[in-house]
Amino acid sequence: MSVALKIDNLSKTFPIKGGLFSKSHPGVRAVHPTTLEVQTGETLGIVGESGCGKSTFARMLVGLLEPSTGVIEIEGKPFDNANPAEFGKMIQYMFQDPVSSLNPRKTIRQIMEAPLKLLYKMPKAEREKRIAEIFDSVNLRHEFLDRYPHEFSGGQAQRIGVARALAASPRIIILDEPVSALDVSVQAQVLNLLADLKTEFKLTYLFISHDLAVVEAVSDRIAVLYFGSVVEVGKAESIFAAPKHPYTKLLADSAPVVGRPLTAPEQKDTELPDPLNPPQGCAFAKRCPRATEKCSAEIPTLTQMGEDQFAACFHPLEG
């Protein structure tokens, strides 16, 4: 197996301007230095709660945001210029909101043609053929091409979003909450389509979501993000069943599951860490039942715990 995506020490700090009379601030670190590898043909799930840095992370990977430090390598080729047009041929992004990601004043044909025309300079006849092929793959009728985005339901618009991402013939697609705006009965249609396309076009997926059950259902491996850092990575089958990091366990216990009695797995008065004033040690220490003095002094790093499972914790859970 080859490596599709490799990121080394990637981080992002958003500067905060000091006012006229106040001290300048070191900035908000949205993503702490992160190192990850994704194999070709793999689906890596990324889960985390709001504000954990998942979207910042994803936007850096497609070149929409310039990283503060670190290198992105796609199929062995380094990308360091944050130029979305260059990234676009290798890696594409599928957006969360199917309606807001399609320009309301353009026909679907115009939207589909843009990447072919600009990234590949394809002549008209060839473009027509390619669009027809893609539309067949995502089960969309060809007459949709001359309609405008507002004429489609959420599920259809999300298929169009997939079709647009595919038009650039990328090797990797980042799926940013691709089904969270959809109803459950339609959600499964889109997820299954994504799975079929992955085999058909030999794609690699990064699947970002806050819905643990959906991520678990579609991913090979899962990375858990907390406060801008990966706190645990492991196989989808085992990470929620046998979590090592207490935060992963908290997530798994919080998800509502049929047949499990209702309990609040956490004390009520917990407050999340403040990004403007980050804690010294492990960001989860204040919420963690296993935290010791060491946890609030030192930041733990990802270490291997069991086969294929890595966690950043001084006091991992056993089992």
């Binding site: 459950v184 009965s185 339609v186 959600q187 499964a188 249609q189 997820l191 299954n192 799975a195 643990l212 059950a213 959906v214 678990e216 259902a217 579609v218 991913s219 090979d220 989808a236 089958e237 929620f240 069943a241 798994a252 998800a255 599951v257 049929v258």
Partner: peptide, 16 residues
């Protein structure tokens, strides 16, 4: 259609 946590990777049922 609703995936449940703890069932691992699978093909999901859909309503056409």
């Amino acid at each position: 259609c609703v995936p449940e946590l703890g069932e691992g990777r699978r093909v999901l049922a859909a309503i056409p």
